[in-house]
């Protein structure tokens, strides 16, 4: 048995479903290069006109935060409620500010 799809690289696929919306991660696929990855993304992830724009990124190029980093990454913002609009109590007549 031969190693197969590892001859091809793994790409992550992001699709913008409508103009004005962000690209959203939809899955991954194997392809030779970026061009082929784009074409396959079109065929594999937008068979029902789900997109108006596609991004492909080599999976190996993604740098992801680790769960272990969660404490130092996200907890420090927990004690900064003053960054949120709801922190400020205003009189009713002007509260839709």
């Amino acid at each position: 048995m031969t190693n197969i799809t590892e001859k091809l690289e793994l790409f992550e696929v992001f699709v913008r479903s409508k103009r004005g919306l962000d690209h959203k991660h939809v899955g991954s696929l194997h392809a030779e290069d970026h061009e082929q990855a784009l074409e396959y993304a079109r065929d594999c992830y937008t068979r029902r006109s789900e997109g108006v724009s596609i991004w492909v990124v080599k999976s190996a190029d993604i740098c992801a935060s680790q769960e272990d980093d969660a404490d130092c990454f996200y907890d420090p913002s927990d004690d900064k409620p003053y960054r949120h609009a709801t922190y400020y109590v205003l009189p009713d007549p002007v509260n839709n500010m």
């Binding site: 048995m1 190693n3 197969i4 799809t5 590892e6 194997h30």
Partner: peptide, 10 residues
Amino acid sequence: SRSEMIEQLQ
């Protein structure tokens, strides 16, 4: 990897 999975299938 996908190739490992395919090997397991085959």
